[in-house]
Amino acid sequence: MTPPAAEAIYARHQRDIYRYVLRMSGRPDVADDVCQDVFLRIVRALQNGGAVGHERGWVFAIARNLMADRNRTALRRAAVEDTSAEPAADASQALAYGLDEALRRLADADRDAFLLKEIGGLTYVEIAAVCSCTVESVRARLFRTRMQLRAALQGLR
């Protein structure tokens, strides 16, 4: 039987976890799988009496660890091959497609920090804890990523 708290925690973050994993992997099926695994991890952690500190950071850390278990390089390569021929119907789609492409070209660590911030809404301190790096490193990654994405998207607007 699922603890009610697990369902509540999952329901609060499910949508953003899905978006985070989808952006990281580029594959909806992987996002589905990881989301379900995140739910299972939450259930098991609560059943084992694990302490939940900052809930959102904890859930995103679970998702991030699950993603790390997969071969992200292979996943991303496959995703790029799958979507490279998709045409953009209008400017909005062109921007979305360009953003996807720009995100895929980022280094994993930079994309990770950026998505944890933009989708997860984590603070610099929380991102540093999840990524096992310093706050200054997070600040630098986010700034670098924004500048790269800005440059990549300037031609699309």
Binding site: E7, Y10, Q14, R19, P28, D37, A96, E118, I119
Partner: peptide, 16 residues
């Protein structure tokens, strides 16, 4: 980045 907020499908808890 936030524009895809509605694109996330609901993952059924029962499946998990």
């Amino acid at each position: 980045v936030s524009n895809d907020r509605d694109g996330a499908p609901g993952v059924v808890v029962a499946v998990a």
